[in-house]
């Protein structure tokens, strides 16, 4: 019996040492990993809404960020549109100006076919969305203004529809909660 206890102990010892080492390295790398992710999102937000200087998180049915300029004025919004593409979800970061017009988009995450649907990350495709409103964010076949990617209609439609839906949702959310924070300190004073 003691033999088996010894075996168990050795295994436990090794596992314990391993855990300790891993815990140590985890302590070193975790902050960097988290920082990486935050940086990535911030960068994406800045790309799709370059007018904004800082961003402010707003919790809602569709969570979004408010983009504020140097003076703290709202210049637009950014949010994630998730569409079901050809072979999985496509996450698109959308930047919306104050006038409910697309400022820019960036496809953050997709698993579409390389050379086909995956071309949706290319600027040739994403730049088409600039300055479109919710009605225009549709592929041409569906009556919108977005040219599809050759051979990958499904991807283009998925991206367009997800953005369009999210924009409609944003509109609702913003109408429900009236535009505030134009002059935060004035509000407070009143």
């Amino acid at each position: 019996m003691s033999y088996y206890i010894r075996l168990g102990l050795i295994l436990f010892l090794i596992a314990a040492v391993a855990s300790a080492v891993l815990a140590f390295i985890n302590g070193l790398t975790e902050p960097i990993i988290i920082e990486n992710q935050i940086q990535l999102e911030i960068q994406a937000r800045q790309v799709v809404l370059p007018q904004a200087d800082t961003f402010e998180y707003v919790e809602d049915e569709l969570p979004y960020y408010r983009g504020l300029d140097e003076d703290g004025n709202i210049v637009g919004y950014t949010f994630m549109a998730v569409g079901s593409g050809y072979s999985g979800d496509i996450d698109t970061m959308v930047g919306l100006t104050d006038e409910m017009i697309v400022s820019n988009i960036q496809v953050i995450q997709q698993t579409e076919t390389p050379g086909l649907g995956a071309n949706c990350t290319r600027p040739e495709f994403t730049e088409q969305y600039q300055d479109l409103d919710a009605e225009q964010v549709k592929i041409e076949r569906d009556g919108g203004k977005v040219e599809t990617i050759t051979g990958a209609t499904i991807t283009a439609r998925a991206v367009s529809n997800s953005i369009s839906e999210a924009m409609i949702q944003m509109k609702k959310q913003l109408e429900a909660a009236p535009k505030i924070n134009i002059e935060p300190d004035i509000e407070e004073a009143a």
Partner: peptide, 12 residues
């Protein structure tokens, strides 16, 4: 353990 180390390092 080594795999996890590589995993974390690469992620960082």
């Amino acid at each position: 353990s080594f795999v996890t180390i590589v995993d974390m390092t690469m992620n960082a």
